[in-house]
Design a protein around this nucleic acid. Sequence first.
DNA 1: ACTCAAAATGACACCGGTGTCAATAAGGCA
DNA 2: TGCCTTATTGACACCGGTGTCATTTTGAGT
Lengths: 373, 373
Amino acid sequence: MARTSRKAAVDFKAAAREWAENNKDGRKPTIKDVAELARVSKKTVSRVINNSPLVNDATRKGIQGLIRDIGYQPDPLARGLASRRSYLVGMIYDNPTPQYVVNIQLGILDVLRNTGFELVVHPCDRKSDTFIEDARRFIEVQKLFGVILTPSVSEDERLAEVIRELGCAYIRIASVALDMERRMIVTNDRAGSREAARHLAKQGHKRIAVIAGRRSFRSAHERRAGFEEGLAEYGISVPPEYVLQGDYTFESGLALGSAILDLDPAPTAVFASNDEMAAGVMQALHVAGQTPPDSLSIVGFDDFETATRVWPRLTTVRTPAREIGMLAAERLFEFDDDSPAAGGRNQTTPRLIERDSTRIPSDLQSRPEPESP
Amino acid sequence: MARTSRKAAVDFKAAAREWAENNKDGRKPTIKDVAELARVSKKTVSRVINNSPLVNDATRKGIQGLIRDIGYQPDPLARGLASRRSYLVGMIYDNPTPQYVVNIQLGILDVLRNTGFELVVHPCDRKSDTFIEDARRFIEVQKLFGVILTPSVSEDERLAEVIRELGCAYIRIASVALDMERRMIVTNDRAGSREAARHLAKQGHKRIAVIAGRRSFRSAHERRAGFEEGLAEYGISVPPEYVLQGDYTFESGLALGSAILDLDPAPTAVFASNDEMAAGVMQALHVAGQTPPDSLSIVGFDDFETATRVWPRLTTVRTPAREIGMLAAERLFEFDDDSPAAGGRNQTTPRLIERDSTRIPSDLQSRPEPESP
DNA sequence: ACTCAAAATGACACCGGTGTCAATAAGGCA
DNA sequence: TGCCTTATTGACACCGGTGTCATTTTGAGT
C-alpha cells in the first residue's frame, strides 16, 4: 500500500461521507470544515487551494478529492481580504460602441469562465477631470486583481502610470505598442487599412478620399497611415483636399459623405476609418439619390454588425474584438510571469472582408488594371 | 457653546491634521484609524458608515467630516466578509444583442456610480443544462448584493426561484409582469406594437404581414399580440399566411423578407418584431431590386442603432434600454423596503419613432383614409 | 436628588481566509 | 547511528470590517 503521509492515513472518502451526514442543514463548508475532516490545518488546505508546491502529493490529492466531494468553494471575499487582492478583473473603457464593448467583454469572459474570477465593468470619461482619480479609487478600493484597458483610455499614459503605482496587473489594448510588449494587445490597424488600400488600388481606383477618425485616437493615425502606405505601393497618393476629418461617429460620416459629393474632381472611392462613418457616407449617398457603389466605392473598418446591415453591404476590415478580449485576459494572468515560456500571442491582424460596397470605378470600362507593386 | 457629546469634545479637524502629519508614508486609513482619531470605538464608526440611526448627531457629523478629510473608504471585501453580502450587483443576461446589453449596463452604472457598488456581468446560456447551477454559484459564492435579470433569462422561473431561495435581491426586466410588481421592470411591448399597428393602419395599409420573434421569448408574444390588437381597432386582421415565424435574427429577417415577396396577394406593409429582422427584410427587398417603402412599408421594434443606419431609416418602436437599466438598479436598492413610499416607477412604455420606412400604400392615390377607431 | 426607560457607545468574538515563522518529519551522508 | 538539509505541516496573529450584547449616559418624570 502506497504511503500517503507520515501520520495515520486519513480516509478522505469516509470524511466526505461524514460531512454529508452531519450537514443535513446544508451549511456551506468553509476551509475549517475541510481541514477538520482531512485532519490537517487550515493552512495546508489553503496551500492546496492555491496550488502551493509545498504540499505532499498524497495529501494534496486527498484534500482535492475531499473538496470536490463536499463541494467546498473558497470565499473570494475572505481570500481577498487576507491577501489584499480580490478575484475581480476590471474592464475600463470609454468608447461605448456597443459592438466593441460587448465583444471584448465576451472574449474576456470566455477566458474567465470557471476560473473563479469575475469581470467588473467600469466605463469612464476621459474628458472628466476626475476620471483618473475615479479609476484609481476603483482599482485600489476593490483591490482588483487586474484591469484591461480598451481604446481610447488605454492610450492614456497618466492612467497607466497610476495603475503601475498601485502595483496592479494590467493589459492595454491599442493599435500600437505603447508599453512593454507583455502589457499590450496590439491590433495591427495599420496592416488592416493597408489591405483596404490595396483592395481599392487593385480595383483600379486612383482618386480616393479618406475620412479620418478622431484625432485624439491613435487608431485614427494608424488607420490613415496604413491606408496611405497601401496606396503608395501602387503609386497613389491622397491629396490634402481628399482627406476629411471625421470623429468616428455616424453623424460625422453622414456630413462628410455629402461633402465628398461636392469634391471636384470627384473621388471614385472613399476609405472611412470605421464602419459607423462608412455607414454615414453611404446614407449620404442614398439621400442624394445615388446608389453606391456605382459612383463611389466605400470601405470601412471594424466589421461590426452595421457593416452587414446596410445596403450595399460594406467591404470592411475586420477587427476580431472577441478574440482580442480573450488574448487580453490570457495575458493578464501571465502578468507576473517572467519566464520566457510565458507571453503568448499579443498581436492580432485585422483582415479585409470583401462585400458589396466596392467595385471597379465606373470610368474604367471592362476590367481593372491590376498594376501590382 | 453647543454640547456635542458627553465626553470631552474631540476636535475632529485637529484629528484630521494629526493624521496627515503622521501618515507620511501614505497608508490608507482603516476603520481603526478613524476610530482612534475620533476617540470612539470601531463600532461607532461602523455605525456612521452604515447610516445607523443609533448615533448621536454631533458624533456622526464629526466622524463624517473626519472620514472625508482623511479620505477613508471602507474596504468592500472586509465589509462583505463580515456582513455576508458583497457590494457587487450582478447582471445576468443571455441575449447578447450588443445594443441592448451595453445600454442596460450603462443605465445600471448610471445609478451605481458613487454608491460603492460595482457591476459584475454574467452572460449565460439558457440551453446549457448547468446554467442555473452556474448562476447559483455565481450569486452564492460572490455573495451578491443583488442581481438584475434581462430578457430572456429573466423569464426563467426556475432561476428566479433559486435566487429567491438564496435570499438575494433581484429585479427582472421583461415585457410582462412575471413576478411581484416590485421585483419587475416591465417594458410595455404590447403598447408599443399597438402604436406601430395604428401607425400603419392610419396610413391606410390593409394587407399587413407580421414577422414574429422567437417563440420562447415572451416579448415575441407581446409584440405580436399588441400589434394585432392595434390593427383590430381599425378592423384589420392578419390572416395566418401573413404571419411568418422569425427568431429575432437578422438572418431570419432576410430569409423571411424574400418569403414575403412571394406572398399573393402581396402585403403592403410588414411589422418585424425587432429591428434586426426588419433590417433583414429591408435587405431582402434591396436584393430583389426593390426600393422600400415603395411597395412595402416596414416597421421594426427596439430602435437600436441599426434602425438609423439602414436606408431608408427604419420606422420603429423605441425601447429605452438605458432608462430600463436605471430603473432596474433603482428598484434593486429598494428591494427590502416595504414602506408604501418605496416602489418608484417600474414600467416603461416604448414609443413609436416615425422615420422613412413606412408610407401610404402605393395603391392609395393621394391621401390615406384615417378611419379613426 | 432619585428612578428608570431610552439613547449612545463600547468590548469582544467572529467572518473565512492568508502570511510568517516555528516545529516536525524524512532522506542523504559521514 | 548521528547530523544536517530539505520537505511538510501547523500555530497563531491578522486582514478590516460587522453582530451581539453589555455598559454607560442622558433626560424625563416624581
